[in-house]
Each structure stands twice: as C-alpha cells, then as structure tokens.
Amino acid sequence: MAIAEMFLWWYAHGWSVFIKKLRGHLTNIIDFFSMSSLVRTLFQPFRQISAETASADSSLELKFHMFVDRLVSRIVGFFSRLILLITGTIIIVLGGIISLILIILWPIIPFAPIIGIILTIVGVTL
C-alpha cells in the first residue's frame, strides 16, 4: 500500500516538488554569484578605489589624473565582474541543463530497476 502511494505521489505531486526544489537551487546559485548586482554595476569602479571625482575648480592635470585612476578602477571592476559573471552564467546554465535532464528523466527513474535488469540480460558492460 505504502509503495503504491509512494509511486502515485512520485508521478503527481512529487514531480512538482522536485521542480520547485530545482528552481530554489538555481535561485540560490544566482544569489551566490550576485548576478543581478554584477550586471547592474558592471562598469562601476572596483571597491571604489580611486573613485573620487575632481571638483570643478581642480586643475586640468588633476582632473586628468583622476579620470585615468577611475578608468583603471572601472576596467579592473569590469574584468573581475565579467569573470565572475561568465563563471556564474556557465554554472547556472549547466545547472539548468542538468535540472532539465532530471525533470525529463523523473518519470523513468522508478523504472530504473527494470532497465537495469534488461541491460544485464542483454549483457551490456563498460
């Protein structure tokens, strides 16, 4: 009775629970890699290092010096964010693909013993 209930749940509510869990994991990964912050601040100076702006009455030399400093800081920020953004995107895409495969495989999993027996009978080996 319990076994039957278990399999019934597997194909009904269990599937949606599994999808929800996968979605939760993907959300956690997105949060872990701060994806939205990275996109929003992609060109901002890294850690506000040399981020001061020159005042209107500063000399042209100082203004230029500060502009260069900020540009360097922004470039450092851009690349460090980009690296993290790419890493995060790869992991999220991989996670998404694996999740999709698992969702598709979900109804087959209870049949795995039968598939295993068939493969044994057929004599498939590595």
Partner: peptide
C-alpha cells in the same frame, strides 16, 4: 559484469524512498 546495471537500477529505490 553486466549485473552491475541491475544493482545501479535498484539503487533508485532507496533514493525514491528518501525523497518521498
């Protein structure tokens, strides 16, 4: 030994049980 597939197949049982 192809019997290994059977064991792997049956390993899904405890997995399903734990998830349930």
């Amino acid at each position: 030994e192809s019997i290994g597939w059977t064991l792997i197949g049956f390993s899904t049982f405890p997995l399903i049980l734990i998830f349930w």
